[in-house]
Design a protein around this nucleic acid. Structure first.
Lengths: 366, 366
DNA sequence: CTGAAAGCGCTTACAG
DNA sequence: CTGAAAGCGCTTACAG
């Protein structure tokens, strides 16, 4: 089936097409690249031959001739595997054409961040993508100063470009939803302080409580570190209070899962006795039982956006123009599953509203 | 910092190196490609200049000149995110040089498998990698008949090449370890029947029990489906028996985590009252508490091996030689954490032995 | 062990 | 609107 020339794939070159169409290779190139200045008749004739012969341009040749190679470095430390997997799929897909090349580098300890970045630069990388938690690392941020870079999911966009969701708005939306469900005594577990998104989520929670006129007692908010273990401890503290909260909002799914485990060990029914919601919509959210109500970020899309921003920035600089810093905000979604239910103040079934929320929606809606 | 030529990256070409080293570009090419026939002195001189100038070959040029482009298709359905992430890192790394190109295609429903494979083929892919559970799908296997392909982690290597660990040996080793810890009444939760590895694990369990002269009652083995939910049900059955097992071996970590949840709800201490072990060493294994004792497969290495086997096969066929089918067996490791402990027959502290097991070891050891 | 020549398939820049 | 020339950076195949 596979036609075989001496060289790889289909073997059909721009010259074959040119000969068959009775034009020069240059004209074929123009048609294939979609340039304007080709007479319609010529264009059609060439296009027909292209289709007939199954011609598809050789990427390597195109890249070599047009000199558009862009090498993108992706520095990953230890985000959750789920996050990384989705992130990789997105970045890989967006790097698979147009002479783009994706180079991965792992870095687990804070001391190795600078070295890892220099290694990427040494490998000829033209720009760097920093997924969380590296997006908030002062060391990493300092090391990329001056070179094209995109920080993904940082809570505080700084000098370099960034792609993120509005964490504050998302936490605000989730908390509003809990209040709407009839909860007023809501416990909150803060995320790791090394990620700026943690503070944003916390702020969103507080704002929603404030706008509803609900007090937040000091022992109603507990520090966590995004780990299951820290969630276990935080939930124990929250549930040991004299007036146990009717809902707990954990800043990620791991801690929410831990909260459910603690509740179960104490004989509490979720969501009957306690509503638990998380953040991330990681696989864990649908692994455990009951499945978690949570906030979803479009991770693969964020990775794609990061690649595009980076490529644009690199091309601009190559063309002698100044680098462009962009801060892109993506949409989040509230995903309502089985771990949340009506609270003490519930007046009637909120089922209809709940269903309406289970979709992507622009931030402005929340 | 970045030297800038008219063209992209570091701007340093093979000619720059050649001039600086006082040799021909051809010699530089030989050194960089690691060919034999270069005088050691020359080789060193060139290598020094390469380092000094920070030369790195232009991939597009290399590909174009050597015509070795190999497009590898990776068809993934819905393995765990953790598995996919590690698998992607491995395949991407191994596809990032030598004119190799990795193309991803997702396929979630069995009916779309054939279409997805045809789409990959249409994109000019020269060979296909099938990670689990696709590695065992009759539809997918039929669709790739005749084209270079590698099935990863299948329990039953067939016509196409394969990369896997010895699931039977791994389950055998884990079960032996449980017996050695003093357990004799061991419950087993089988994996999803659509993956041939499930049967292998089951067989390994049975063999270890048999060789220790331990009977396996019918209600001591329960069918699961690799989901947390199915683990919940299976564990409930297992723990409802008149003589409750002192250990449960689940065929994956999700089901093991569910088993721990059930144990906790019944007020059982893990591993005090019940030892629970899993399989996969997924992130869940270290997320939950207590952390899971489990079997680890070298997923990234398996992906790398799959890429290499595929590339070799494709090159062979291009050279007119017959395709080569390879079946590669990788090493697994028993990872002992907090969810396992001494059983009723324990004679003395097995701590020393336990520690010795926490490492990679060739299959022959088990 | 080393090098000069030719070419991979395409595009840029320049003419017409 | 179209084409002839030159070149992208490397490797293959052939000489020595």
């Amino acid at each position: 089936m596979q036609p075989k020339g001496r060289r790889g794939n289909s073997g059909v070159t721009i010259h074959d097409v040119a000969r068959a169409a009775g034009v020069s290779p240059m004209t074929v190139s123009r048609v294939v690249s979609g340039e304007k200045n080709v007479r319609p008749a010529t264009r059609e004739r060439v296009a027909a031959v292209v289709r007939e012969l199954g011609y598809s341009p050789n990427l390597a040749a195109r890249t070599l001739a047009s000199a558009e190679t862009v090498r993108i470095g992706l520095l990953y430390s230890n985000p959750s595997a789920a996050y990384l997997s989705e992130f990789l799929v997105g970045s890989l897909e967006q790097s698979s054409f147009g002479g783009r090349q994706l180079i991965l580098e792992r870095c687990d300890t804070p001391d190795s961040e600078r070295a890892a970045i220099e290694k990427l630069l040494g490998a000829g990388v033209n720009g760097i993508i920093l997924p969380p938690p590296l997006c908030d690392s002062p060391t990493a941020l300092a090391a990329i100063a001056g070179i094209p870079a995109v920080a993904v999911a940082t809570g505080r966009p700084a000098e370099s470009s960034s792609v993120r969701i509005d964490d504050k708005a998302a936490a605000l939306a989730m908390t509003r939803r809990l209040i709407q469900l009839g909860h007023s005594d809501i416990g909150f577990i803060i995320g790791h302080p090394n990620q700026t998104a943690s503070a944003q989520r916390h702020a969103g929670f507080l704002e929603a409580m404030a706008e509803a006129g609900l007090k937040v007692a000091p022992d109603q908010v507990v520090q966590g570190y995004f780990t299951y273990r820290s969630g276990l401890e935080a939930a124990q503290q929250l549930l040991a209070q004299p007036t146990r909260p009717s809902a707990i909002f954990a800043s990620n799914d791991d801690m929410a899962a831990a909260t459910i485990a603690v509740a179960h060990r104490q004989g509490l029914n979720v969501p009957g006795d306690l509503t638990v919601v998380g953040y991330d919509d990681s696989p864990l959210a649908t692994t455990i039982w009951p499945a978690l109500t949570t906030v979803r970020q479009p991770i693969a899309d964020m990775a794609r956006a990061a690649v595009d921003i980076l490529v644009e920035d690199i091309r601009n600089r190559r063309a002698g123009e100044p680098g462009v810093t962009q801060h892109q905000l993506m949409d989040f979604a509230l995903i309502e599953r089985e771990s949340s239910g009506p609270g003490p103040n519930a007046k009637r079934s909120p089922a209809t509203d709940a269903r309406a929320l289970d979709r992507t929606a622009p931030n402005v809606d929340w």
